[in-house]
Amino acid sequence: MGSFVVNIVTPDGIIFDHHAKYLVANTAAGSLGVLPNHAPLISPLEIDAVRIDLEDDSDHKSEWVAVNGGIIEIRDNVVSIIANSAETEENIDIARAKAAKIRAEEKIAAAKEASDHGIDMDRAEIALHRAINRLNVANKRR
Rank of each mutant, 00 (worst) to 15 (best):
V6G: 00
N7K: 15
N7M: 13
I8E: 03
T10R: 01
T10P: 03
D12N: 13
F16S: 00
D17E: 11
D17H: 13
H18K: 15
H18S: 14
H19Q: 15
H19G: 01
A20E: 08
K21L: 11
K21V: 13
N26Q: 14
T27S: 13
T27Y: 01
S31M: 09
G33E: 12
V34E: 03
L35A: 10
L35N: 10
P36D: 02
P36L: 09
A39H: 11
P40L: 03
L41C: 02
L41H: 07
L41M: 12
A49M: 09
R51I: 12
R51N: 09
D53Q: 14
E55Y: 07
D56E: 14
D59C: 05
H60P: 02
E63S: 13
A66H: 03
N68R: 13
G69H: 03
G70Y: 07
I71F: 15
I72N: 00
I72F: 08
I72E: 00
E73I: 10
R75F: 10
R75Y: 12
N77I: 04
V78C: 08
V79T: 06
S80L: 15
I81P: 04
N84I: 04
N84P: 14
A86S: 11
A86Y: 05
T88R: 15
N91A: 14
A99S: 14
K101Y: 13
A104N: 05
A104K: 02
E105M: 06
K107W: 04
I108Q: 00
A111E: 05
A111T: 04
K112V: 09
S115D: 15
D116W: 00
I119H: 07
D120S: 14
M121C: 10
M121Y: 15
A124G: 05
I126Q: 07
H129N: 12
H129Y: 03
H129V: 07
A131H: 06
N133R: 02
R134E: 07
A138Q: 01
N139G: 11
N139I: 09
R142F: 13
R142P: 06
R142L: 15
